[in-house]
Design a protein around this nucleic acid. Structure first.
Length: 572
RNA sequence: GCGCCCGUAGCUCAAUUGGAUAGAGCGUUAGCCUCCGGAGCUAAAGGUUACAGGUUCGAUUCCUGUCGGGCGCACCA
C-alpha cells in the first residue's frame, strides 16, 4: 500500500514537473533510510533525474515535493534534504492504524505482490547421494528453503527442488564400496575401490543388508544391486534429515529419469540441429595453453558443444570418445526440462567449487536457445567450522565430517539456520560451534526468540488480569511506541528487498533490530498498568510486534516459541 | 599463468544494488531489578573501509594497479 502510493505519487509528481520521459522513464529507487532523521522513506530520484535534465537537483526536488499528491492517511510530510533527497514521513494516522492492520493480516503481514518473472524453480542442496549431508549442504538448505519462502511472500510462484545425481560414476563407486563393506562383513576378501567411499556409514549400511540377497548379488558381481541399495538408503537419510531440518522440496528429481526417458539424447539431438555440435580430438577453440593435445592423440573423437560462442573460454565435451556423456550433458537436459515444465526462471544454489562451471552452463543453455536470464546461479560459499578456536577439518574421503544431523543434534536446527542465514550467502562463513552451542545471550538466535517469548508471556500475564489488546484503536504518542511502530512498518519492504536481491540475511538483521526495538519499548513503556485503555492500546502494539517476529522467523524456518526455559548456563 | 569470491572495530559480520554522520552482536569498561520474563536495558571506548590512483554532486559499493586469503581452471561429477 505504501509502496504503491509512493510509486504512483512520484510518477505523477515527475510528470507534473516535466521530468518524465515516456521513452526513458527515470528509475524510481525507494529506500528506508538508515537515519530516522531522514524520514520513513527516501528517494534520490530528483538527484538522478536532475542530472539527465541538466537541472538543479534541489530545485527539482522542491517541485516534486510540492507536486506529490499528499495522502494524510499515509504521509504527513515530504521534505527536501541534503543535495536533493526527498524524505517522506508517516502521518500519526498511518502509524496509529498499523497494529490493527498487522492484526487483521496476521501471517500474511509482510507479503506483497511484486511484478515477477513468473514461476521460479529453486534448486538447492542437490548433494551427491554418496554420503550424509555436510555443513555446506546445511547452509545451502537453510538459504534455499528461505529463498523459496521469500519469493512466495512477494507473490512469485516458487518451488524447491533437489537434483539427485543417481547416474554415473560416483554412484557406481558407491555401489562397489558397499559391496566391499559387505564382503568385509561376511569375511570374503574384496578390496575397496581406489577412490571408494571410506565412511563408517557404509559399514553400518552393509551390516543392515539382508544377507542372502546380498551374498547372491556379490557372487554374480551385481554391483547395480548394491548401488540401488545404497542409493535408496542414502536418499532416505537425506530426505529425513532435510525434512527434520525444515527444508521442503516439491520434488526430488532423479538424473536417471533423464537418461531413461531419453531426454538426454533428445537434448544432444537438438543441440546438433542447432549446429552447436562437432566431433574432434581437441576443441576447435582453446584459450588456455594446457598441453593436453598430445594426450588426446591416444583417444578417439569426442563430441564438443560450441559453448565458446556464448562466452565460455573453450568448447566443452558433452560426449566422451567412449560414447558416454559427461556430467554436462544431463545437466543441460535437466535445465531444458525445467524450462519445458513451464518455469520462467531457474535459481540454482551451487557450492563454491562449482563457480567455474557457471559460464559453460549458461553458454550451453544459450546454445539451446533458452532465454539469457533463465538461469541464475547463486554460490553458497564455504563454511569453516570452528571449535575451540580451531578449524574442524572435513574430508569426505576419509569419512570424517560434521553432518547435518550432527549439527542439528549439537546446536539445534533453529540456531543452525539462524546462523547460516545471518550471513550473506556469497561470503565465507566461520561457524563457531562453541558459540552456536551456547544457549545464552551470546547467541543472536535466542535474542530474537526471547523477544517473542517475552511478548507471549506479557500477553498471558495481561490476559490473566482480563486485559486484551484494544479493538477500537487509539493514538500512540510515546517515543518508544513511535520507534517500534516505524520499525514494524518497514517489514514488508525488508521482505521485498531480501527476495529481490536474493539476500535472506536481511531478514535476521531486521529481526534483531526489531527485537532490540521491542526490548527498548518494554523498558520505557509500562504495558500493563492502571490506565486500562492505555494498557489495551499497548497490548495491541505488543501483539503486532509478536506477529512480525513470528512471520519473520517463519521465513527463516526458525520457530517462534511462546516460552523459553532458562538454562542452567544462563542462570549461572 | 588465467578466472571467480573475499579483505570493514580486538573477534564474527552488516551497510537497503552509488546515498546523507560506516552500523550490530560478542569481548572490554561503567551503570540499571520492591513492579509486565535481567536470555533484558543504558552509556563509554573501539575505524585512514588492505594499499595507491581514477570516475562524480556523492564511493565500503563502480574502474585500474599492488599486496594478502580462499576456490576453481578434465574426454571427474
Amino acid at each position: 500500500m505504501v509502496w504503491k502510493n509512493l510509486i504512483e505519487g512520484l510518477t505523477a509528481a515527475l510528470r507534473e514537473a516535466g521530468a518524465w520521459d515516456d521513452a526513458r522513464p527515470p528509475r524510481l529507487e525507494l529506500a528506508i533510510p538508515r537515519e530516522s532523521a531522514h524520514g520513513d522513506w527516501t528517494t534520490n530520484v530528483a538527484l538522478v533525474a536532475a542530472k539527465a535534465l541538466g537541472q538543479n537537483p534541489r530545485a527539482l526536488a522542491a517541485r516534486l515535493a510540492a507536486a506529490f499528491p499528499r495522502d494524510p492517511s499515509i504521509f504527513e510530510s515530504v521534505e527536501v534534504a541534503g543535495p536533493g533527497f526527498l524524505n517522506f514521513r508517516y502521518s500519526p494516522a498511518f502509524l496509529d492504524q498499523l497494529p490493527a492492520r498487522i492484526d487483521s493480516e496476521a501471517e500474511a503481514f509482510g507479503e506483497s505482490r511484486q511484478p515477477g518473472e513468473g514461476a521460479v524453480l529453486v534448486e538447492y542442496v542437490s548433494a551427491n547421494p554418496t554420503g550424509p549431508l555436510n555443513v555446506v549442504s546445511a547452509r545451502a538448505a537453510a538459504v534455499g528453503a528461505s529463498l523459496v519462502r521469500l519469493l512466495r511472500a512477494t507473490g512469485q510462484g516458487a518451488e524447491g527442488e533437489f537434483y539427485v545425481n543417481d547416474a554415473g560414476h560416483q554412484v557406481g563407486l558407491l555401489g562397489q564400496s558397499l559391496a566391499a563393506r559387505f564382503a568385509e562383513r561376511i569375511g570374503v576378501p574384496r578390496a575397496m575401490p581406489e577412490e571408494g567411499y571410506q565412511g563408517e556409514y557404509l559399514r553400518e549400511l552393509a551390516a543392515a543388508l539382508p544377507e542372502a540377497p546380498a551374498r547372491a548379488a556379490l557372487e554374480r558381481g551385481d554391483f547395480a544391486w548394491f548401488r540401488d541399495q545404497a542409493l535408496d538408503r542414502m536418499l532416505a537419510w537425506q530426505r529425513r534429515d532435510l525434512s527434520d531440518y525444515g527444508a521442503e522440496f516439491a520434488r526430488w528429481f532423479r538424473e536417471s529419469e533423464l537418461h531413461d526417458s531419453s531426454r538426454v539424447t533428445e537434448t544432444l539431438a537438438e543441440l546438433e540441429r542447432r549446429g552447436m555440435i562437432y566431433r574432434a580430438r581437441t576443441p576447435e577453440t582453446r584459450s588456455s595453453e594446457r598441453p593436453d593435445a598430445e594426450e588426446a592423440d591416444e583417444l578417439g573423437d569426442a563430441t564438443y558443444l560450441r559453448t565458446s560462442r556464448f562466452g565460455d573460454d573453450s568448447d566443452r565435451v558433452v560426449m566422451k570418445s567412449t560414447g558416454a556423456p559427461t556430467y554436462l550433458l544431463p545437466d543441460i537436459a535437466y535445465h531444458r526440462d525445467k524450462r519445458a515444465r513451464g518455469f520462467r526462471h531457474a535459481i540454482d544454489l551451487w557450492g563454491p567449487d562449482h563457480h567455474g562451471y557457471i559460464p559453460r552452463m549458461k553458454a550451453a543453455l544459450l546454445a539451446l536457445g533458452l532465454e539469457p536470464d533463465f538461469l541464475e546461479v547463486l554460490i553458497v560459499q564455504q563454511v569453516n567450522l570452528l571449535s575451540g578456536g580451531q578449524p574442524v577439518k572435513m574430508s569426505k574421503r576419509a569419512g570424517e565430517f560434521i553432518t547435518l544431523r550432527e549439527l542439528m543434534e549439537d546446536v539445534g536446527a533453529d540456531a543452525a539456520k539462524f546462523f547460516f542465514l545471518m550471513r550473506s550467502t556469497s561470503a565465507h562463513l566461520d561457524f563457531d560451534l562453541d558459540l552456536a552451542r551456547r544457549q545464552n545471550d551470546e547467541n543472536p538466535a535466542y535474542y530474537v526468540q526471547y523477544a517473542h517469548a517475552r511478548i507471549a508471556a506479557l500477553l498471558r500475564y495481561a490476559g490473566g488480569s482480563g486485559l486484551e489488546p484494544s479493538r477500537e484503536g487509539g493514538h500512540y504518542d510515546h517515543p518508544g511506541e513511535i520507534a517500534l511502530l516505524r520499525q514494524l512498518a518497514a517489514f514488508p519492504e525488508v521482505i521485498r528487498g531480501a527476495a529481490a536481491a536474493r539476500e535472506p540475511h536481511r531478514v535476521p538483521a531486521y529481526l534483531i533490530e526489531t527485537a532490540a526495538e521491542f526490548h527498548r519499548f518494554y523498558h520505557v513503556c509500562r504495558v500493563v498498568g492502571d490506565d486500562a485503555s492505555r494498557s489495551r492500546l499497548r497490548l495491541r502494539l505488543v501483539a503486532a510486534t509478536g506477529t512480525v517476529l513470528r512471520n519473520g522467523l517463519a521465513l527463516l524456518g526458525v520457530t517462534a516459541p511462546d516460552r523459553m526455559d532458562r538454562t542452567v548456563e544462563a542462570l549461572a
